[in-house]
């Protein structure tokens, strides 16, 4: 149904273990008096690839932004890799250095070269020696297929290249979990594929991933679970085949008919 994904996917390393990576219990969040997230319960196991879908304003981005505390939750618990997110700065920094995040608008640092973008956090947060950080950065830049752009500035790259740099930048921190917040929504159609390919490769290596995306082809090809949200709540979650072919709730059916209808 979606022609952006054409390749064969190697599933040999896509295994889900029993180990819990993220545990969200009874989480609630408000923006002022507006109740954005309501009673969210979600357990993510290591190796899972979860796609979160839903209409705009349903709270999907807010949900994953709570996982690395870019947004603060007001009630309930979020435990990431065994560390509970509270207002304790130490815990927050610990979680953030374990969880990589890719944004819709890339958010690369425009005053630094691509290589410096990738080495900054390892050097200053992980205290990796500069030389070693650069080697790691070149490794991941090769993986996202832009090692030759290492000494350019982000402003000189195309959108797709910038997003791949952003992915490499996150990977340089060697995270155990990756969060993607609509990574392809700001891209031209021709560039979506190159970013999705990079994400698929990451999934093939067994990375634990949470993706907010409208790319349903990606969800079908890679995800092991699709979560549908509306009005701040999880409305339905299921494995992709069931989710797309046999949606249970009326809201999900309506949503799917609208985004897949044409």
């Amino acid at each position: 149904m979606n022609e952006t994904i054409t390749r064969q996917i190697d599933r040999s390393h896509m295994t889900v273990s029993d180990e819990v990576a993220i545990e969200i219990r009874n989480m609630n969040k408000w923006y002022g008096t507006f109740h954005v997230l309501r009673d969210i319960d979600l357990t993510v196991h290591r190796g899972e690839r979860i796609v979160i879908a839903g209409p705009s304003g349903s709270g999907k981005s807010t949900l994953i932004r709570c996982i690395n505390r870019l947004e603060e939750h007001q009630a309930g618990h979020i435990v990431v890799d065994g560390v509970e997110l509270t207002s304790d700065i130490k815990n927050i920094d610990k979680v953030r250095s374990e969880v990589g995040m890719v944004f819709q608008h890339f958010n690369l640092f425009p005053h630094l070269t691509v290589l410096e973008n990738c080495t900054l956090a390892p050097i200053w947060v992980r205290k990796v020696p500069k030389k070693q950080a650069e080697e790691t950065a070149m490794h991941f830049l090769s993986k996202v297929k832009i090692p030759d752009q290492a000494h350019k500035y982000p402003g000189q790259l195309s959108g797709g290249q910038q997003q791949r740099v952003a992915i490499a930048r996150s990977l340089c921190m060697q995270p155990r979990i990756m969060l993607f917040d609509e990574p392809t929504s700001a891209l031209d159609p021709e560039m979506i594929k190159e970013v999705l390919d990079t994400m698929i490769e990451l999934a093939e290596e067994g990375m634990t991933m949470l993706c907010v995306t409208h790319e349903m082809g990606f969800a079908q090809a890679v995800a092991n679970r699709v979560i549908f949200m509306d009005q701040g709540q999880i409305v339905e979650q299921n494995e992709p085949v069931e989710f797309f072919n046999n949606p249970k709730s009326e809201r999900t059916k309506l949503f799917l008919s609208q985004i897949l209808g044409h």
């Binding site: 953030r96 250095s97 200053w124 921190m173």
Partner: peptide, 18 residues
Amino acid sequence: LPKGQYEAADALGLDYWK
């Protein structure tokens, strides 16, 4: 500065001063 710059720095685990 766009808000995204602060968010990206936060997400990478840089503390306030860094």
